[in-house]
Simulated scan of single mutants.
Amino acid sequence: MKFELFQECQTATRDYYNRYWQMLKEVELADELGWDSYGMSEQHFTPVEYSSGCPEIFFTAVAMRTKKIRIRQGIVLLLKAVNHPLKIAERIGMMDIMSNGRMDLGTGRGNKLGMLKAFEVPLEETRQQWEEALEMIPKIWTEETFSWDGKFYHIPPTVVNPKPIQKPHPSLWTATTSPEMYELAGQKGIGVLCFDFTSPDKTAKNVEIYRKSIKTAKPVGSFVTNGVAILTMGLCAETTEYARRLAKEPMMAFISEAGRIYAELAATKVKSYQYMGKQLAEAAAHPEFEYLCDDATLVVGDPEECIKKLRLYQQAGADQVIIRMDGMPHQKQMDSIRLFAEHVFPALR
Score class of each variant (00 low, 15 high):
Thr268Lys: 04
Lys167Pro: 01
Trp141Asp: 03
Glu249His: 11
Pro85Tyr: 01
Phe45Val: 07
Ala266Ile: 08
Pro329Asn: 06
Gly108Gln: 01
Leu339Cys: 02
Asp201Lys: 12
Gly317Tyr: 02
His44Trp: 10
Lys202Asp: 14
Ile209Val: 14
Thr268Pro: 02
Ala118Leu: 12
Thr107Ala: 13
Asp96Ile: 00
Val300Thr: 01
Met136Asn: 05
Tyr182Leu: 02
Ile75Val: 15
Glu26Ser: 09
Glu26Leu: 02
Thr176Ser: 05
Phe146Ser: 00
Ala318Asn: 05
Glu49Ser: 15
Val82Asn: 05
Phe3Glu: 03
Lys151Asn: 12
Glu32Leu: 10
Arg211Gly: 09
Lys332Gly: 10
Gln22Ala: 13
Lys269Cys: 04
Arg70His: 04
Met251Tyr: 10
Val224Met: 02
Arg324Ala: 13
Ile261Asn: 14
Asp149Arg: 14
Ala61Cys: 11
Glu180Arg: 07
Glu257Trp: 15
Gln73Arg: 05
Ile337Arg: 02
His286Gly: 11
Glu125Trp: 06
Gln333Pro: 08
Ala267Asp: 11
Pro162Gly: 09
Val270Ile: 14
Gln187Arg: 15
Gln315Glu: 15
Leu292Tyr: 08
Glu180Tyr: 07
Glu304Asp: 14
Cys194Leu: 08
Glu28Asp: 06
Val192Gly: 07
Met233Arg: 13
Pro200Arg: 12
Asn226Trp: 03
Leu298Asn: 01
Arg19Leu: 09
Glu143Thr: 08
Lys202Pro: 07
Asn100Gly: 01
Gly259Asp: 11
Asp36Phe: 03
Gly53Ser: 15
Gly93Gln: 04
Gln320Ser: 13
Thr142Glu: 01
Phe340Arg: 01
Val159Asn: 08
Tyr275Arg: 01
Ala63Phe: 04
Ile190Trp: 08
Val192Arg: 09
Ile255Leu: 15
Thr60Cys: 10
Thr46Asn: 14
Tyr182Gly: 02
Pro138Asn: 04
Asn18Gln: 13
Asp294Ile: 05
Leu24Ser: 07
Pro55Ala: 03
Leu77Val: 02
Glu124Ile: 09
Ala204Ile: 05
Glu26Val: 00
Asn100Pro: 03
Ile92Val: 12
Glu238Val: 06
Thr177Leu: 13
Ile71Trp: 00
Asp104Pro: 00
Glu241Ile: 05
Asn206Ser: 05
Arg338Ile: 09
Gly317Val: 04
Arg70Trp: 03
Val27Trp: 01
Thr145Asn: 09
Phe45Lys: 01
Trp21Pro: 09
Arg324Cys: 11
Arg349Ile: 06
Leu24Pro: 04
Leu235Gly: 06
Lys151Leu: 11
Phe45Pro: 05
Tyr242His: 13
Tyr20Gln: 09
Ser51Lys: 11
His330Gln: 09
Ala285Trp: 12
